[in-house]
Each structure stands twice: as C-alpha cells, then as structure tokens.
Design a protein around this nucleic acid. Structure first.
Length: 195
DNA sequence: AAACATCGCAACCGCTTCTAC
DNA sequence: TGTAGAAGCGGTTGCGATGTT
C-alpha cells in the first residue's frame, strides 16, 4: 500500500487513513441520502464545501467496515469463531457470505480474523481444529462448489453486548491522537448535529 | 530503556459480476 | 446483444501497537 501522499493535482484523490472530518462528511451524507451509488456519493460529498476527495470504492469500504452504526467491533466470541470455522469449511473464502451470518461483523474483519488467528492456530495444532472443537463441520471441501442452498448451522447469531451503536456499549476509544477516535464519538456528534 | 520482532487491523488494488443503456 | 460504468469481493500490504529480548 503505497500512500503516495497526494499527487495533489488531477482531481487529487486522497488515500490512506480516514480523518475525523472525512468520517463526518460521509456519515452526514449517508444520513441524508442513504447508502449506495457510491461514486455519486464520492462526487457529491466531495464538493467545494467539504472536500471529501475519496473514491466511491473507498467510501463504500469505510462505511461498511467501520462507520455503519450496526458494526460490532473487537472480541470475536468463541461462538462466532466456531461459526466462522464452520461456514468457512462449507463455503471457503466467501467472506462476505460468511459475514452475512454474523450480524454486525464485516467481511473484512472476518477475513482478517481468519488469516491472523485461525490460520495460525491451525498451523500450530495442525491436524486438530482449533478451539478444542472437533469436527466443526463435515469434511466438505472448501469452495468445492456453489452451495448457496446449504443452510448455515444456526440462524444468524446475536452475540455479546458490545453493539457498536450510538449510545450503546462499546470499547473505549484508543488514547486519541486527534485524527483517531471512536465510533461512539462520531455518532454522538452525528446525532448532535441532528442529521 | 532501547531495539527488534510480531501481531492485528484499516485500507488499497485488481479482478469479477451486475446493471443500465 | 454488446458495451461501459458501477458495485462487490477477495487478496494483499503498510503501519501502529504491543510484546520480547
């Protein structure tokens, strides 16, 4: 990821970490106009008034993975781990599909979780599935077929109290540097604006 | 206390799929 | 029916945080 810190010409598209202002602009825009049509959003929200110089793709990603009010962050519970492993055994790396079975979790988060923790654990404990849960799924081969019909092992779970929504439980924001802040800050500000 | 190594996550990239014309 | 643009998805990377020596 090279962050060419701005070729500040030719409709200079910003890259790299999002700032508080950009988050606010995006939240406000979506609050007023709804999700979708990301390129339009990127263009409109990026008018002279605000200066949101992001691609539609980037806006979409930021919203879905971080800003959405129902995104749950942190601590993946053992139940979720189990579910992830089970679904991964069925569907392979279909992260977005898996994410749909875990309300509030994003495909990116699950993907990261899988790569950083589960894969590592599997490597360490090679033959035995991690978490002491044996036979978490059939031996069906990952991605060995489009099995959209296959039911997930359980209905979408509602786990844990830490719902990341305005005014609800949420892990404390990191000791902040001014551009880094927690979502609850954003959303309370957002609500404050009445938008 | 400093230097180094490892981990975890946010964000970008490129490819594929979908949709409108 | 073909084409172009937009959206979605999975893989990869960069960097800050944390742990270890």
């Amino acid at each position: 990821m090279e962050k060419k810190s701005s070729k500040s010409h030719e409709s200079d598209v910003r890259k790299g970490p999002w700032t508080m202002e950009e988050d606010m602009i995006l939240i406000n825009y979506i609050a007023n106009h709804g999700e979708g049509v990301w390129n339009t959003l990127a263009r409109s929200a990026g008018d002279k008034r605000y200066g949101l110089k992001r691609t539609g793709k980037s806006c979409r990603l930021r919203w879905l993975n971080y800003l959405r009010p129902d995104v749950r962050r942190g601590n993946i519970t053992p139940e979720e781990q189990f579910l992830i492993m089970d679904l991964h055994a069925r569907w392979g790396n279909r992260w977005s599909k898996i994410a749909r079975q875990l309300p509030g979790r994003t495909d990116n988060e699950i993907k990261n979780f899988w790569r950083t923790r589960i894969q590592k654990q599997m490597k360490n404990t090679e033959p035995v599935p991690a978490f002491g849960i044996n036979n978490f799924a059939s031996t069906s081969c990952p991605s060995s077929g489009e099995d959209d019909q296959i039911e997930p092992p359980s209905p979408p779970m509602h786990i844990g109290p830490q719902v990341n929504n305005a005014g609800l439980d949420f892990a404390p924001p990191p000791p902040s540097e001014d551009v880094f802040w927690g979502m609850e800050d954003l959303w309370s500000l957002q609500l404050f604006n009445g938008e």
